[in-house]
Amino acid sequence: MLKITDFEGTWQISRVITDRLAGQTGQLDGVATFTRTDGNTLAYVEEGTLQLADGPKLQATRPYRWHFGDDVVAMTFADGSAFHSFVPEGYVEGTEHDCGDDTYAVRYDFIPWPRWRAVWVVSGPRKDYTSVTEFTR
Rank of each mutant, 00 (worst) to 15 (best):
M1N: 11
M1C: 11
L2H: 13
K3Q: 15
I4C: 09
T5F: 03
D6I: 11
F7Y: 06
G9E: 05
W11Y: 10
Q12S: 15
Q12C: 02
Q12K: 14
I13Q: 00
S14C: 06
S14H: 12
V16K: 09
V16W: 00
I17G: 00
I17E: 02
T18A: 12
T18E: 14
T18Q: 15
L21M: 08
A22F: 09
G23V: 08
G23L: 15
Q24M: 13
Q24W: 10
G26V: 00
Q27S: 12
L28K: 00
D29P: 00
V31H: 02
V31L: 03
V31S: 01
A32H: 02
F34N: 01
T35M: 12
R36L: 12
R36Y: 02
R36N: 10
T37H: 04
T37A: 12
D38Q: 10
G39K: 05
T41R: 12
V45W: 02
E47S: 15
E47I: 02
T49Q: 15
T49G: 05
A53M: 01
A53Y: 07
A53C: 07
G55D: 06
P56L: 14
K57Q: 11
L58D: 01
Q59P: 00
T61L: 03
T61A: 06
R62W: 03
P63R: 04
P63W: 03
P63G: 08
Y64M: 10
Y64E: 05
W66M: 15
W66G: 00
H67A: 03
H67T: 09
G69V: 08
G69I: 04
D70V: 13
D71W: 10
A74C: 07
T76M: 09
T76I: 08
A78Y: 10
A78S: 14
D79M: 12
G80R: 05
G80A: 07
S81H: 14
A82G: 09
F83L: 11
S85W: 03
F86W: 01
F86L: 09
V87D: 07
E89A: 13
G90E: 04
G90I: 11
V92R: 09
E93P: 05
E93N: 06
G94H: 04
T95E: 06
T95V: 07
E96R: 15
E96C: 09
E96H: 09
H97I: 10
D98E: 13
C99Y: 12
G100C: 09
G100P: 04
D101G: 11
D101C: 11
D101M: 13
T103Y: 08
Y104M: 07
Y104D: 04
Y104V: 14
A105N: 04
R107L: 06
D109P: 05
D109S: 08
D109H: 14
F110E: 02
I111L: 14
W113V: 14
W113E: 08
W113I: 09
W113P: 02
P114H: 08
W116V: 01
R117E: 14
A118V: 03
V119L: 06
V119Y: 00
W120H: 14
V122D: 02
S123K: 13
S123L: 08
S123E: 06
G124V: 03
G124I: 11
D128A: 11
S131Y: 02
V132P: 00
E134C: 03
F135M: 08
T136H: 08
R137A: 07
